[in-house]
Amino acid sequence: MTDADAQASDSPERRRAAWMAAAQAGDRIAYERVLADSVPLIRMAARRQGVAVDQLDDVVQETLLTVHRVRHTYDPARSYDAWLAALAARRAIDALRSQGRRGRHELHDDHAYDAYPDAHDATAATEREQEARHLRKAIAALPPGQREAVEQLGLKERSLAEAAAHTGRQTGALKVNLHRAIKALRARFHGES
């Protein structure tokens, strides 16, 4: 029986703290348990910040990625729930800000459509070409690991197993890289305009 199992009979918060402490030492089962257990807490923290229901899953996934990146900052002597809630609140605020920026951008586009209606298809085709060029450029600018995941899984439409065999990377790493790449591309095309 591991320490994580021994403390699993405690209160849910102490159980999560013990799982995260075990995860810091590399215990994968404890890690997946604590992440799964964290999902409702993240949703609750995001709701408290005013995140809309249809955006909650985005915030959950972003928070899980952040937890993964900064898991070394958790101190098992302190509350896991407070640590997680602080990260979730920050990610919720980021989501609300990015939604606000996107909202302004779309309003601007509506105005553009009224003022300059599509005259002919050639213009639309040129725009599509331009967009594709921008997307190719944006993919080329991604960090190597993320670019590889987009090329293998998105553009060449390889399965995870095929992509893993082809690149020599683990399927988990490929999936995480794809998720990060989509986030970066989304921020580039919607968030920073």
């Binding site: 995860a23 590399g26 994968r28 890690y31 997946e32 992440l35 799964a36 996934q61 899980l64 990625l65 993964h68 683990q170 399927t171 988990g172 790493a173 999936k175 995480v176 998720h179």
Partner: peptide, 9 residues
């Protein structure tokens, strides 16, 4: 995603 992060741990 949780499984992927677990695999990357």
């Amino acid at each position: 995603l949780i499984q992927s992060l677990g695999a990357e741990l």
